[in-house]
Amino acid sequence: MLKKTKKDLVHDTDNQTGFEEEDQQPEVIYHEHSHRKSVFFGTILAVVLAIGLSMMSGSYTSEGSAEEVVANRISKSTLAGETPFTDETNAGITAKDFEVTVGDSGGDAKMLIWDFNSEDNDEVQILVNGQPLKEKLILANNPAAISIPVPSTVTVKGLKDQGGGISYAVKFPNDKVTYYNVVGMNAGNTYTVRPL
């Protein structure tokens, strides 16, 4: 018993020298230490989960710098809604048409479209086989989901440019591929969508 008290005393003097001052302070509320501990373990859990999830899902950064990923045009690890650039730049890419092969689910496929640099409310029109599916779509950093038939030809037509060109990214979640593209005013990019 006496030994224990001695040990505690030594421990207390140790604490005074270091930053561990909290033990000498009375608790503000009951179970303060427990509440604090839960925050600590929550932080550890979040770190572990963050590392685990990033290994599982990744992001565009696993393919190189923002400049490289956008210049390469096609990315397999971009998460929908990711914005490699925060200002109105696009690695100098030019308008391009793509052929897309998707594993369709019952003749339909999902297409996600978003603004991959600064959100400046550029407007586009989405046409499927020449027929307008969305008369006006304001591009945002948050992706918009569009259901498209497979096979089909999807055209993204530029309606309004708020400066810096209309740059956007299109992702087909069925085959997890993202295409970085730009479109001019009243011009169009086509995506020829074919089933696997």
Binding site: V47, G81, A144
Partner: peptide, 22 residues
């Protein structure tokens, strides 16, 4: 509702905030 994904804050950022809170 929309079928479109949203990027959350990310657990890495939450862990950092948790550390500051701790």
């Amino acid at each position: 509702k929309l079928g479109a994904p949203r990027l959350g804050m990310g657990l890495g950022v939450i862990a950092f905030l948790g550390f500051i809170l701790f």
